[in-house]
Amino acid sequence: RADKQHVLDMLFSAFEKHQYYNLKDLVDITKQPVVYLKEILKEIGVQNVKGIHKNTWELKPEYR
């Protein structure tokens, strides 16, 4: 399990490339446990629960 700041850096870097990611792809990118990753994502992102981007994560507007 990596340092939180290191995980945040990896996530922000990923979100610079694409606006939406599913959790599986973010786990592959960060190599972090799902529960730990979700904890961090809830602080900086929102999970889309409907629409064409259903079940994906994106950054909260203040982090874009």
Results as ranks from 00 to 15, higher is better:
Arg1Lys: 14
Arg1Trp: 07
Ala2Val: 13
Ala2Tyr: 06
Ala2Asn: 05
Asp3Val: 08
Asp3Glu: 07
Lys4Ala: 05
Lys4Met: 04
Lys4Gly: 04
Gln5Ser: 13
Gln5Leu: 06
Gln5His: 04
His6Leu: 15
His6Asn: 11
His6Cys: 09
Val7Met: 08
Val7Phe: 02
Leu8Pro: 00
Leu8Trp: 06
Leu8Asp: 00
Leu8Glu: 08
Leu8Arg: 14
Asp9Asn: 14
Asp9Met: 08
Asp9Cys: 04
Asp9Leu: 07
Asp9Trp: 04
Asp9Ile: 05
Met10Phe: 03
Leu11Lys: 00
Phe12Cys: 06
Phe12Asn: 07
Phe12Trp: 09
Ser13Asn: 11
Ser13Ile: 10
Ser13Cys: 10
Ser13Pro: 03
Ser13Lys: 15
Ala14Phe: 11
Ala14Cys: 15
Phe15Val: 01
Phe15Glu: 01
Phe15Pro: 00
Phe15Ser: 01
Glu16Ala: 06
Glu16Asp: 11
Glu16Cys: 07
Glu16Asn: 12
Lys17Phe: 04
His18Val: 09
Gln19Pro: 14
Gln19Thr: 13
Gln19Trp: 05
Gln19Asn: 12
Tyr20Ala: 10
Tyr20Lys: 09
Tyr20Ile: 04
Tyr20Pro: 02
Tyr20Phe: 06
Tyr20Ser: 10
Tyr21Ser: 03
Tyr21Thr: 03
Tyr21Met: 10
Asn22Ile: 05
Leu23Pro: 01
Leu23Ile: 06
Asp25Lys: 08
Leu26Val: 01
Leu26Thr: 00
Leu26Arg: 00
Leu26Ser: 00
Val27Gln: 11
Val27Ile: 14
Val27Asn: 03
Val27Ala: 14
Asp28Lys: 09
Thr30His: 00
Thr30Arg: 00
Thr30Pro: 00
Thr30Ala: 03
Lys31Tyr: 03
Lys31Arg: 11
Lys31Thr: 05
Lys31His: 02
Lys31Pro: 01
Lys31Ala: 08
Gln32Ser: 07
Gln32Glu: 08
Gln32Met: 06
Pro33Val: 01
Pro33Asn: 08
Pro33Thr: 03
Val34Leu: 15
Val35Phe: 07
Tyr36Cys: 07
Tyr36Phe: 14
Leu37His: 01
Leu37Asp: 00
Lys38Trp: 07
Glu39Thr: 10
Glu39Ala: 12
Glu39Pro: 11
Ile40Lys: 03
Leu41Gly: 00
Lys42Asp: 11
Lys42Met: 09
Lys42Pro: 08
Glu43Thr: 09
Glu43Met: 04
Ile44Asp: 00
Ile44Arg: 02
Ile44Asn: 01
Ile44Tyr: 05
Ile44Val: 12
Ile44Glu: 00
Gly45Trp: 02
Gly45Thr: 05
Val46Ser: 09
Val46Trp: 09
Val46Glu: 09
Gln47Cys: 13
Asn48His: 15
Asn48Val: 13
Asn48Trp: 04
Asn48Met: 07
Val49Leu: 12
Gly51Phe: 03
Gly51Ile: 02
Gly51Tyr: 01
Ile52Glu: 14
Ile52Lys: 14
Ile52Ala: 15
His53Glu: 09
His53Asp: 08
His53Met: 09
His53Tyr: 07
Lys54Val: 08
Lys54Tyr: 06
Lys54Asn: 11
Lys54Cys: 11
Asn55Lys: 08
Asn55Gly: 14
Asn55His: 07
Asn55Glu: 11
Thr56Trp: 06
Thr56Tyr: 11
Thr56Glu: 15
Thr56His: 13
Thr56Phe: 06
Trp57Ala: 02
Trp57Thr: 02
Glu58Ile: 04
Glu58Leu: 05
Glu58Phe: 13
Lys60Cys: 03
Lys60Arg: 12
Pro61Met: 08
Glu62Asp: 08
Glu62Tyr: 12
Tyr63Val: 10
Tyr63Arg: 07
Arg64Ala: 15
Arg64Met: 09
Arg64Gln: 10
Arg64Gly: 08
